[in-house]
Write a protein that binds this DNA or RNA. Structure first.
Length: 504
RNA sequence: GCCGCGUUCGUCUAGGGGUCCAGGACGCCGGCCUUUCACGCCGGUAACACGGGUUCAAAUCCCGUACGCGGUACCA
């Protein structure tokens, strides 16, 4: 009983609220979530708001709504209190202070009073060609102002005097830190490369390193699944676990999502220049379906081991495994994302599709006034017609524009190709014939048009293409006859007459 | 610079000593279907970074090089 409780998997997604939720962040959350689901464990959301300078008020809400949009919900978090709260680091300050105190008392940490300028000066002073950026570490700390060199009395006086100070980890060199990464295997660092990391900043807030280790411990986190950018600081964290005498959690560092072209990790700036969505919000605004984004992101670096590519969240949670994550960085390929989106759009029922397109359709409705959208039945027929030829649900409102309004222009290339010398006369006569028709379904429309063409001794194409142009303004689209049936006789006749007028 | 991680078609990837003159998907190109456009179907294009080693045998193991990425903050 106790055993199974202790061995229960707990993972966390720990974003800092500095802006909107990045898709790289969503992917990290997704992997953690899948891992937890797969192992019957808990997925915890922890807000790492220890940087007052970069804190953004709305960011936390943004993160929450982004996760919700993607269809994943934390088991514990600021809005879902569990047994390990609070879930915002800013609310856990006393805990960090207590642990820092412990480190101080046990000689694993010390106070440092150096100003940023003094540290900068030290860096300049010790800089050499091979080491252009000296660290605050075992080799330089003797030159600095800290409790290691100052008398206890002096330290006390400075602190009582409220001199700005930080708490640093006393990281001693001469060893090696080796650990097993669930994605990369054995990883090894020399302790000589680890500096005397700041644990408590001069504003009293902990740094990521301390807070992260303390919280993972306090929250019973068993697996740390995070981006590769954290790999180099893992030895610092491991040193902390060692100093506390704690068993570290398992580590898994996932490959980063790179900019298209492979230059650097996916950045907002770079992506936006190319019009790519890089935040969850942008994905939503661009009309991507959450299922597509989730599916795409999950397959970026992970694969199920067979050729399947389309998965529901439940399936992914069932199949997920850290062992199947690759080690290299992956490029963001919007083409593939679009393909996923198209797959999901095609799989929707007509009602679902309409539902997804609703926000865009609403805009269209207020702009048109033709009244087409007030007719639910025709709306559904239109959606069914468009479904196989769109990539986004919003294309219903955009690419299918001629269902709402008479074409204002006619595609030039198509006119050149399809509008012949006799088109006007032919269509004029055809419009009259149409106007006399009583019934009007697709089969009827087709039979009528073919009969008319034969009567006139013209190939059906001589009528079909110009009529399509007249009715829709563009060369492609659903079957002309289906389209006409949905549009209705009167609209078709009106549009054909108008085209005859305009195009002559 | 230093430290670390990585490297299979343009992209995401399968494969982890022989079954691989390397498989799938996206993209691209061609064809069929359709008097449109898509969808669908069929076909094509295109990769083991390089150099050494180990082995009867290496995309797969080892070493080195190159290149890429990450880190090197009182940011996370």
């Amino acid at each position: 009983m106790t055993e199974s409780f202790l061995s229960k998997v707990r993972v966390r997604f720990a974003p800092s609220p500095t802006g909107s939720l990045h898709i790289g962040g969503l992917r990290t959350a997704l992997f953690n979530y899948f891992f937890a689901r797969r192992r019957g464990g808990a997925f915890v959301l922890r807000i790492e708001d220890t940087d007052r300078a970069r804190f953004v008020r709305e960011a936390e809400h943004n993160i929450l709504s982004g996760l919700e949009w993607a269809g994943i919900q934390p088991d514990e978090g600021p809005d879902r209190p569990g047994d390990f709260g609070p879930y915002r680091q800013s609310e856990r300050r006393v805990m960090y202070a207590r642990y820092a105190r412990q480190l101080l008392d046990e000689g694993h940490a010390y106070y440092a009073f150096d100003t940023p300028e003094e540290i900068e000066a030290m860096r300049k002073r010790f800089a050499t060609e091979e080491n252009p950026s000296p660290k605050y570490d075992a080799v330089t700390r003797g030159e600095m102002t800290n409790s290691l060199g100052l008398s206890g009395e002096e330290v006390r006086r400075r602190i009582d005097r409220k001199d700005a100070h930080v708490v640093r980890l006393k990281a001693d060199p001469g060893g090696r830190i080796t650990f097993h990464d669930r994605i990369r295997g054995r990883v090894s660092f020399s302790t000589g490369g680890v500096d005397d990391q700041i644990l408590i900043k001069s504003d009293g807030m902990p740094t990521y390193h301390l807070a992260n280790v303390v919280d993972d411990r306090e929250m019973g986190i068993t697996h740390v699944i995070r981006g590769e950018e954290w790999l180099p600081s893992t030895p610092k964290h491991l040193l902390l676990y060692q100093a506390f005498g704690w068993e570290p959690p398992e580590m898994a560092h996932m490959p980063l999502i790179m900019n298209p072209g492979g230059k650097g990790k996916l950045s907002k700036r770079h992506a936006e220049k190319q019009g790519l969505p890089v935040t969850v919000e942008q994905c939503r605004e661009a009309g991507y379906e959450p299922e597509a984004v989730v599916n795409f992101l999950t397959l970026l670096g992970w694969n199920p081991g067979d050729d399947r590519e389309l998965f529901s969240v439940d399936e992914m949670a069932e199949l997920f495994s850290l062992d199947r994550i690759g080690g290299g960085g992956v490029q963001f390929d919007v083409n593939k994302l679009n393909w996923f989106n198209q797959q999901y759009v095609r799989g929707f029922s007509v009602d679902e599709l309409l539902e997804r397109a609703a926000p865009w359709l609403r805009d269209r409705r207020s702009a048109s006034g033709v009244g087409f959208l007030e007719n639910e039945e025709r709306q559904r027929r239109m959606a069914a017609l468009m479904q196989p030829r769109i990539t986004f649900s919003k294309d219903l409102a955009e690419a299918g524009g001629y269902f709402f309004e008479d074409p204002a222009t006619y595609d030039e290339v198509a006119v050149k190709k399809r509008w012949k010398a006799d088109s006007a006369a032919l269509l004029s006569a055809y419009a009259s014939r149409l106007g006399d028709a009583s019934v009007f379904d697709a089969a009827q429309a087709e039979a009528m048009l073919r009969a008319f063409a034969e009567e006139r001794g013209a190939g059906a194409g001589r009528i079909i293409h110009p009529v399509r142009l007249a009715v829709s303004g563009v060369p492609g689209g659903p079957s002309l006859f289906e389209m006409m049936a949905v549009l209705g006789k009167d609209t078709c006749v009106r549009r054909i007459r108008r085209a005859v007028e305009v195009l002559g």
